[in-house]
Write a protein that binds this DNA or RNA. Sequence first.
DNA 1: ATTGACCCATTGTCCGACAATATGTCAATA
DNA 2: TATTGACATATTGTCGGACAATGGGTCAAT
Lengths: 251, 251
Amino acid sequence: MSVNHNFTKLARQPAYRAVSEKIRQVILSGELQAGDMLPTELELAEQFGVTRSTLREAIRLLEESGIIGRADRKRLVVTLPQTAAVGRSVSSAMLMHRVTFKELWQVAMGLEPLAGKLACASATDEDKQRLADNLQHTETVLDDHARLLEAEIDFHNLVASATHNYALLQARAPLNDLFYPAWGAVIRALSPGQRILVAHRRVYGAICNNQPREAERWMEKHMIDFRRGIEMGNLGFDQPVTSAANTSDQN
Amino acid sequence: MSVNHNFTKLARQPAYRAVSEKIRQVILSGELQAGDMLPTELELAEQFGVTRSTLREAIRLLEESGIIGRADRKRLVVTLPQTAAVGRSVSSAMLMHRVTFKELWQVAMGLEPLAGKLACASATDEDKQRLADNLQHTETVLDDHARLLEAEIDFHNLVASATHNYALLQARAPLNDLFYPAWGAVIRALSPGQRILVAHRRVYGAICNNQPREAERWMEKHMIDFRRGIEMGNLGFDQPVTSAANTSDQN
DNA sequence: ATTGACCCATTGTCCGACAATATGTCAATA
DNA sequence: TATTGACATATTGTCGGACAATGGGTCAAT
């Protein structure tokens, strides 16, 4: 019989990956901060001792992570990742995993009431003003399905932003891409404009009056309404969500 | 005075990005499924009418999203994104945004009790067995700080997995990378092995007996303990978390 | 059934090249 | 002075070709 000592299957990584990791480290360590310009591709390539081709591949990895981008279409610049940019990767993953509407709803039930609650303590006057503007705008589009959905999504984003909690913003990013858009079907089927407006007003009022319990409860009711809408419309609560944001413009 | 009509600043996208988007679309539309092999780089390049260099840059973008990878280090293959892979991008973003421990804790307060609650309804016998194994293992490492932290993280992952809710798994991914590791300092400072074990046992018991309320409450208590630990240890509850997983191995 | 020798396809990396495009300078003009 | 135009320069996006290393396959020898 053979003596079997299990060796750890050593994984060498290609150069483009090593370069990418190195740059990422430097950025995450704070040595390079958001807004800092990076050297030109040629210069970077020389520093790492690789060719421009290899370096460019490394750059792409960081680009997709959203931590570097281009300033004015030329120079590379360290960037503060936008929630939307990072969220797209997450959303892609969820689509491939065939996440159901129910799963997203469960997460929404955990995060949206929380957002309402937290917003009470942290919303600035500017946040409140933006919410007020949103409510006013919503009233004018109650019967315009597309705009209503847009206003609806905006409202929830504004509440989340009012928490000033980036971790929360990031955690709920996929809801924007997958959960609410899918809900557009409900709006078209049931025209629940009034119910939406009432719930939003309650949440807004609670935030303004610093009543976290109220904000939490009404956001929860609002979410339960969502579920009811999906089920009543027979729109596949247990079905995988489909990518609504599939409409990237190109030939 | 000049007539000022604000034109939308048209943004042309480079070829590597267009190619990347196209492939992503095909995958997300389901036309290509996880496990499917892609043609060779040369073949793909010819199909798109670009050179291999350009195509490779496109591949890097998708690679970072975790939706394609390499089977046996050669052929490209459509991959089901791993939570860890996608989570890394998210974690990077959070680090750059200087997310505080408090922010992460707030998210954890929203998601971990939820995970406990949902797990009650969806945990399989196998899930329960894994939890039981984890508890048994935890008892043996109560005084080994490193292993205790590891077991602690494992437990929460197991509970989350038991929900069989991928959206939830993805949403709480950054907690694994940033929240719990940072909590290692608490373990070293306070040696709260017993408290941890008690809470875990309660959660486990509630899941086995299908008592969602109990599971939720004990998970919540557990999280509050976390916060207390951080504050008692004076470990910077309001400070940005630092990347503990910064230790990637390379020269 | 394992080993070794061999071939082949594909990747990772390199090099050199060029057009398109921003940036900067400077003169000309109103 | 402020705007315009002409020009030189730097940098990116893309191309095409090249080669070593490596994994997979075949086939013969043991």
